[in-house]
Computed example of a mutant assay.
Amino acid sequence: MEKEPILILTHDGWGQALLKSVRMIVGEIKNVYEVPLQAEDSLPEYIAKVKEQVNQLQWSKKLLILTDIKGGTPSNVALRISKDYEIVAISGLCASMLLEAVMKQEAGGFTRELAQEIQTAVIESCQVLELPQIKK
């Protein structure tokens, strides 16, 4: 079974560094693509780049798009193209989100429910780390 594609939209391409980090944990990752927003890209240029990449992908239910910052240009572009494509987008990209999404690539297609599972896993992974206090 072909792994479902995941599209990453980030500022300045830091998604590639994130992919490299996740590869250290899970090994080879397939069917994950990034369209970085560069400082010199105008909004129409970036939208065109994203649409060009989307048009090259095939997915079964919804295309999963992971974006870095809610309200940022990559997130806004994901929302904008959702009028033309069957996508589900999640903002707040981090290593745990990408890891969870990669582990769900073989689930038979991304859905809103699966996206919510990814979001829940990310929220649960975000914790303040403290050593336990030893009572004397």
Rank of each mutant, 00 (worst) to 15 (best):
M1V: 04
M1S: 12
E2K: 15
K3E: 12
E4V: 05
P5Q: 08
I6K: 11
I6N: 09
I8H: 08
I8P: 05
L9T: 04
T10A: 03
D12I: 08
W14Y: 15
G15S: 05
Q16I: 12
A17H: 13
A17I: 09
L18I: 13
L19N: 10
K20N: 13
K20W: 07
K20V: 02
S21M: 14
V22E: 05
R23I: 03
E28Q: 15
I29Q: 06
I29E: 00
K30V: 13
V35H: 02
Q38P: 03
E40Y: 08
D41A: 11
D41C: 11
P44R: 03
Y46E: 11
I47D: 07
I47L: 13
K49W: 10
V50G: 02
E52D: 15
E52G: 06
Q53L: 11
Q53I: 05
Q53N: 07
V54P: 03
Q56D: 08
L57I: 01
Q58H: 13
Q58C: 07
Q58Y: 08
S60C: 01
K61G: 02
K61A: 00
K62M: 02
L64P: 01
L64S: 03
L64E: 00
L64V: 04
I65Q: 03
T67P: 05
K70C: 03
K70D: 08
G72R: 09
G72A: 14
T73Q: 05
P74L: 06
S75C: 13
S75A: 14
A78E: 04
A78R: 04
L79Y: 02
L79K: 06
L79N: 10
L79S: 13
R80D: 00
R80G: 04
R80W: 01
S82R: 02
K83I: 04
D84M: 01
D84W: 03
Y85A: 01
E86G: 02
A89S: 11
G92M: 02
L93E: 04
C94F: 00
S96R: 03
M97P: 04
M97S: 05
M97F: 06
M97Q: 06
L98N: 06
L99A: 03
L99C: 06
E100H: 10
E100M: 06
E100P: 04
E100Y: 00
E100I: 01
A101S: 13
A101I: 06
V102S: 00
V102W: 01
V102R: 00
M103I: 08
K104E: 07
K104Y: 07
K104H: 13
Q105R: 13
E106N: 14
E106Q: 13
A107D: 06
G109H: 05
T111E: 07
R112I: 11
E113Q: 12
L114Q: 04
A115G: 07
Q116Y: 11
Q116F: 08
I118M: 08
Q119T: 09
Q119P: 01
T120N: 12
T120C: 02
T120K: 15
A121Y: 12
I123L: 14
I123A: 11
E124L: 11
E124H: 14
E124K: 15
C126L: 15
C126G: 12
V128S: 11
V128T: 14
E130N: 15
E130Y: 15
L131A: 15
L131I: 02
Q133S: 13
I134N: 06
I134P: 07
K135A: 07
